[in-house]
């Protein structure tokens, strides 16, 4: 029973973080707020964190998950969460002194980088508790079924969507500007530039 619980908790972990990344997309495209370089780094750290439970889920394809697989998965998550929390803390400290309004708009009273820091702290606690009860929670008698396929597929789609979104924002530049104000890929397109020029002539 606890073996199955450990397997489904790994699924829940990935689903929850996929929700966080999707919420980031809602703010980016819904509220038209472009993510800054540190925001992008936090997204990347979240994906690195998700690789931990995904490793546990993926090992179920090859048979039973061993305790070594389980501890390695959550060990990866802890290391990535520490890096992500460091990036989020850096961004909090950049904007912490009043009257700095912070970067972007607040959601439920907190900026997105503060929420990000909280999620990394939750990950650290979750992984710690999972490792304390590792012997009981290591998945046994589980198989890689349709639910696992859906979770893994959702993860891969979200990573691919992030890749495309960051290409739109970055264009063919090597690094993002500190405070991005436009999607560089579309801005550099000569076709759009010509359309804007002809529109201006008509107006």
């Amino acid at each position: 029973m606890t073996g199955r619980l450990g397997f489904w908790l790994a699924h829940l972990f990935v689903l929850a973080y996929c929700g966080v990344l999707l919420a980031g997309f809602v703010v980016q495209f819904g509220a038209d707020e472009l993510p800054c370089p540190l925001c992008i780094l936090q997204r990347q750290a979240m994906i690195l964190v998700m690789c931990g439970p995904l490793y546990i889920i993926g090992r179920a394809r090859r048979g039973d998950v061993t305790l070594a697989d389980y501890t390695m998965g959550y060990g990866m998550s802890i290391v990535a969460a520490v890096v992500g929390a460091g990036v989020a803390a850096r961004q909090i400290l950049l904007h912490i002194v009043p009257p700095d309004p912070g970067y972007g708009s607040a959601v439920l009273g907190l900026h997105l980088y503060t929420w990000s820091f909280i999620t990394f702290c939750v990950v650290l606690v979750f992984c710690g508790v999972s490792l304390i009860f590792g012997r009981e929670l290591v998945p046994r008698g589980v198989r890689f079924g349709w639910a696992s396929k859906v979770v893994c597929g959702l993860f891969l789609v979200i990573v691919a969507a992030n890749l495309v979104a960051v290409f739109f924002e970055l264009g063919f530049h090597w690094f993002l500007p500190p405070d991005p104000t436009r999607y560089e890929t579309f801005h550099g397109l000569p076709l759009l530039g010509a359309a804007a020029m002809s529109g201006g002539a008509v107006g």
């Binding site: 990347q44 994906i47 690195l48 998700m50 690789c51 995904l54 490793y55 889920i57 993926g58 090992r59 179920a60 394809r61 090859r62 890689f144 893994c152 993860f155 891969l156 990573v159 691919a160 992030n162 890749l163 960051v166």
Partner: peptide
């Protein structure tokens, strides 16, 4: 992100 996609793909493949 491309390396992360590769890492994720390898991870879910087991």
């Amino acid at each position: 992100f491309a390396v992360l996609l590769l890492a994720g793909w390898l991870t879910v493949r087991g």
